[in-house]
């Protein structure tokens, strides 16, 4: 499955002073993969939603949440 966020496990030294973050992430938004945008891509159903999202096409929509926010905190 395509993901817009990739994860890696950096080297952790036994003498690192800060508590190590063992899994780090970075963003890979959709424009990196699309190439030349093909014609007639599916669009959002309403103009209102497109204006809200900032793009006409779901294929170009890139949601962003802080990687420091946990999924189970309900925020």
């Amino acid at each position: 499955m395509f993901t817009q966020r990739k994860f890696y496990t950096p080297y952790v030294s036994p003498t690192d002073p800060c508590p190590p973050i063992r899994i780090k992430s970075y963003e890979t938004p959709p424009q990196l993969y699309l190439g030349f945008q093909p014609p007639c891509l599916p669009q959002y159903a309403t103009a209102k939603e497109a204006l809200y999202r900032g793009t006409l096409w779901p294929a170009l929509y890139s949601p962003y949440e802080s990687p420091y926010k946990r999924g189970d905190t309900g925020e």
Binding site: K6, F7, S25, T28
Partner: peptide, 12 residues
């Protein structure tokens, strides 16, 4: 290197 960073192998 950009292609390596884009690869899906690094997904969670």
């Amino acid at each position: 290197a950009a292609e390596i960073l884009k690869e899906e192998r690094g997904k969670k």
